[in-house]
Write a protein that binds this DNA or RNA. Sequence first.
DNA 1: GCCGTTTTCGGCCCGACTGTTTTCAGTCG
Length: 615
Amino acid sequence: MRTGNEEVSRVLETVADLLEVLGGEEARKAAAYRRAARSVRALDEDVADLHEAGRLTEIPGVGGALARKIGELIESGRLAYHERLAAEVPPGVLDLLRLPGVGPRTAGLLWRRLGVEDLETLEEAARSGSLRKLPGFGPKKEAAVLEGLAALRRRSGRIPLGEARPAALALVDLLSAVPGVTAVSPAGGVRRWCETVESIDIVAGVEEPEGLQGPAAGNGPGDARSPEGAGRAGGPGGSVAARVAGIVRDLPDVTEVLQVARDRVRASLRSGVEVDVRLVPARLYAGALRHFTGSREHNESLQKRAASMGLALGPEGVLEKGGRSRPARSEEEVYSELGLAYIPPELREGRGEVEAAAEGRLPRLVELSDIRGDLHVHTDWSDGHLSLEGLVEAARARGYEYVVVSDHSRSLAVTGGLDEERLLAQKDAIEELNRRLAEEGPAEEHGAGPFRLLAGVEVDILPDGRLDLPDGVLAEMDVVTASVHSALRQPGERMTERLVGAAKNEHVDVIGHPTGRLLGRREPSALDLEGLFEVCARTGTLLEINASPERLDLKDTDARLAKDMGCRFTVSTDAHHARALGDMVYGVATARRAWLEPGDVANTRSLADLRRLLR
DNA sequence: GCCGTTTTCGGCCCGACTGTTTTCAGTCG
């Protein structure tokens, strides 16, 4: 497995953190490492390919020294410089950075002055009152630290889908190449596209060697509450598990690969997340996949329904009462035998989907192929890495009909946000590019007309509630998204006023990432969401489902509530480079978890229909 | 450690907010 861009980027970022925690002269270098880390993350090419071609120094912010270090990392998977720095700092000190308001400087100070080595010792220091004796600390910071620790504990043991899913897919790839493995899939939270998961679950079907086949029923299959009962690799007894253990013994390849794969996945993840690979005999695969995918609530609903029909439901499939039964050949079959329409994994949460399936009123969920354009993308006019031309190319490659350029506005200075003048200049550039595209003729993918770049903006909602650009300019734009990027911790009332004020502005089409949360890193702003939804439903202002796996904002349950209140949505990536356009899958999955249909999502529309909606 | 010249060192995306200060450091976006 090659060292990927993400991993290189993460090591460089960690080096930067360590340098700043250690302080002193070397800390100056940190900014250089961070810049390089960002560049590598934004690369569309594989950093390993660049290394092979000797082109690493073409990456902005990478000179000779960093090129050598990145090369070392790619070739050996390790970086001696990183290991040397890490050895100087207790490992728990870097965990302190996960607290809002604690940066590397503060972490270094806590460690050197108070001997704080990890989150636990920090909590002790906060509770004993020794924290506020530190320069720059007072009662408020102490309270913020304790609150941050509490928030961290609430989400401990869970990792964001954006980390879990790639790890799960890598594991699936490894396993599917093993002889004897007939089918393999993620299950559990990853398959349901939960925003965070506490374990990575994989189900793999394994060929049964001669002589081991036997009836599946009557063996006391595990129930939904204790999935371990059904043949978790290397797990405890039970006859299904025992049979699996027998198979595994005959297939040393599998156990070996499993061990390697599991270690690798664990190592690639920050926290000690569980990785459970369930090996099942091939003919039990479909039933097991169903069993290990649904939430406990979903599985319990199914079991209740089975019981009410005089049936039982186990990991193999639907069983006739007291009798044996053949294992399910597909998930569809299980649902059908229970008199239910097929329930897609994203809905298997125990939120009314079983009842809906029974009554034939499951939604026709929006799909990735319904999406005709991305309404929130950044370019190199602000902090994105794509040129306008590059954006067109990347969006066309995804089969889109249109894409909205929505760069930041002036107040977000660090992003090079656009003022009125530059925004209008960008609009001219977009129109010029559209003229050229029109001459080229219709985009082949759809034939409905030439690909169109739309002129938009992500205008900042300022701390006082005003928008960062005058109405006159906003009126000129095709699509205006209004978002909060500063003062995210204002009291709920003020935050709500800011967002409601923006939603009421006639030029604002979309409220971007409404709660401002960052999964695993930043809590959502205090906000009266229902109040906001009410206004959006009335004014027709769209709510964004930000597809970046760091955000997923709105989240599934909030979006479902908003839909029930009459709101409509956009699903957009907020991409800052070409690869991030691919995050759309996360946004669509979140929309599906919110029970959204194509009609609920503005960017499933043709350009003409979209324009009509926005008017 | 990078970069871009002022070619061999000195600056380093920028402004606001926060909690702490009594003039500012650190964090954040």
